[in-house]
Design a protein around this nucleic acid. Structure first.
Length: 437
RNA sequence: GCGGCCAUAGCUCAGUUGGUUAGAGCACAAGAUUGUGGAUCUUGGGGUCGCGGGUUCAAAUCCCGUUGGUCGCCCCA
């Protein structure tokens, strides 16, 4: 038993694990590139204050934070949003609009691990700054769908639930609730799916029992699953602001439909997301079977850049995690089995043959072939076994006979046939054999 | 921060009412096999039975604590 253990919730990536992680990262990066997003990165360690400024003092309980040797209060980053707001805010006037950025990075949260959640995890983050209209949401939701669809996941595997915190604000305002009550109610709506009626307890304790008729309307609004239903619910309210939101909803849904993504999205006003800083559309991606936690989440946060000291800059973004994505791909059999087979395995007779083979091995590797050979002398039988197990397509045989004749034997391991070529033509012969197969 | 379950070899696990030197399969390594294949056979390395304490003539086994894992609650950026 090892004396030193991995810290709780932290992750080690053995080669097979890293191959899976790289596979996920590769497709995310490909998706972002095809959408014209630019990649950035930033420090893992940030001032603690950055997160407190965004989320409040309570956040400290969820952070890996400490005092550094210079007396600074610091924290390992639990998310990218405040950081990217700072980066963009600092240069906002010099950046071409729209600003479309993404990153793939590791994050840390001091929480108990559970299924799909570790203390260390990776997230793909994509954000658009400087675009106030729903065109930014169209772009991001399309990218989110591609970030899952790229693996072969279909509309039967996952979907994106769409909602709108602004619409909720206006709706509750029209029902006569003030801002404080509205915030509390949005928290209750967020918890309702899990807790049922219990979710409204906190509101009742603060503001007194919820009027039964209004509660009915709130529960009814949560049931809304289409634009037509939104229109039906709000037309009686006759509010200018709500009319504006409806126009944005139409543009958003029309745009997504025109991209052929209508089957991936579902209007669902029961989603509000717990985060108070979201200001408009919010969305979450879920496994259709529903046995995993959220795959991805995001929304509009028009006030955050300014709140963190930058200019007044509208923004939308989302994040998608590697843990839940990996679980879903495993469940659906979409995680490829990664084997790193060499092109060529070199079989070496002995000391003299090894010295000759080394020259050719170097030449083959310099030409881009993946070449392996036994580090120590071994019986031919064992070497052929190793060659077969390695998955190599070809074996090159450097034995006493070949050396004497100035040739190399090339064996096609699958076809089990061999030919001899002159030593000076080995690279060309290997290239020929591999391209022919 | 709170609760349920779990912990024996790298992995999956067996281990009798507490009783000799803790086992198997897989994996790994060597040999059979000094010029041809993923098989087979033989052999080998690998264990503080998570850790600490207690009960007992005797503990992998029973008790307490602790650490870690896992699942859930709170939270979820």
């Amino acid at each position: 038993m090892a004396t030193f253990q991995t810290l709780p919730g932290f992750r080690e990536f053995y080669p097979e694990d890293l191959a899976r992680r790289n596979h996920i990262f590769r497709l995310w990066r490909q998706a972002a590139n095809s959408f014209g997003f630019a990649e950035y990165d930033a420090p893992v360690l940030e001032p603690l204050e950055l997160y407190k400024a965004k989320s409040g003092d309570e956040i400290e309980g969820q952070l890996f934070n400490f005092t550094d040797k210079g007396g600074r209060e610091v924290a390992l980053r639990p998310e990218m949003t405040p950081t990217v707001c700072r980066l963009v805010g600092a240069k906002a006037n010099a950046l071409k609009r729209p600003i479309k950025w993404f990153s793939i990075a590791e994050f840390f949260r001091y929480e108990r691990a559970q299924k799909g959640r570790q203390r260390s995890f990776y997230q793909f983050n994509a954000d658009i700054f400087g675009e106030p209209g729903p065109e930014a949401e169209i772009e991001l939701i399309a990218l989110l769908i591609q970030c899952l669809g790229g693996f072969g996941l279909t509309k039967d595997d996952f979907y994106v639930r769409l909602s709108d915190r602004d619409l909720w604000f206006f709706y509750l305002e029209a029902l006569g609730f003030d801002a404080g009550q509205t915030r509390e109610l949005l928290g209750a709506i967020d918890r309702f799916e899990k807790m049922g009626d219990e979710a409204f307890k906190a509101y009742a304790e603060k503001f007194g029992a919820l009027d039964a008729a209004k509660k009915e309307r709130i529960l009814g609004f949560m049931q809304v699953r289409s634009l037509a239903q939104i229109e039906g619910e709000v037309q009686k309210l006759d509010q200018q602001k709500i009319a504006g939101r409806l126009a944005d909803w139409r543009r958003l849904l029309d745009g997504l439909a025109a991209m052929g993504l209508a089957d991936f999205v579902q209007v669902d006003l029961s989603v509000v997301r717990g985060l108070a800083y979201y200001t408009g559309f919010v969305f979450e991606a879920f496994d259709r079977k529903g046995d995993l936690r959220a795959l991805a989440g995001g929304g509009r946060y028009n006030d955050l850049v300014k709140k963190l000291g930058g200019p007044d800059l509208p923004a939308v973004g989302f994040a998608i995690g590697d843990v839940t994505t990996g679980l879903l791909l495993e469940q659906r059999g979409l995680m490829p089995n990664f084997v790193q087979a060499p092109d060529v395995y070199v079989v070496i007779g002995g000391e003299a043959e090894r010295r000759v083979a080394f020259g050719d091995i170097q030449a083959l590797r310099a030409s881009g072939f993946r070449v392996e050979y036994p580090l120590k002398d071994a019986a031919f039988g064992k070497q052929f076994k190793a060659a077969a197990e390695s998955g190599a397509k070809l074996a090159l045989i450097y034995g006493g006979d070949e050396l004497a004749k100035g040739v190399v034997k090339i064996r096609d391991l699958a076809a089990r046939d061999e030919r001899e070529v002159g030593r000076d033509t080995v690279v060309a012969a290997v290239r020929d054999s591999l391209s022919g197969g």
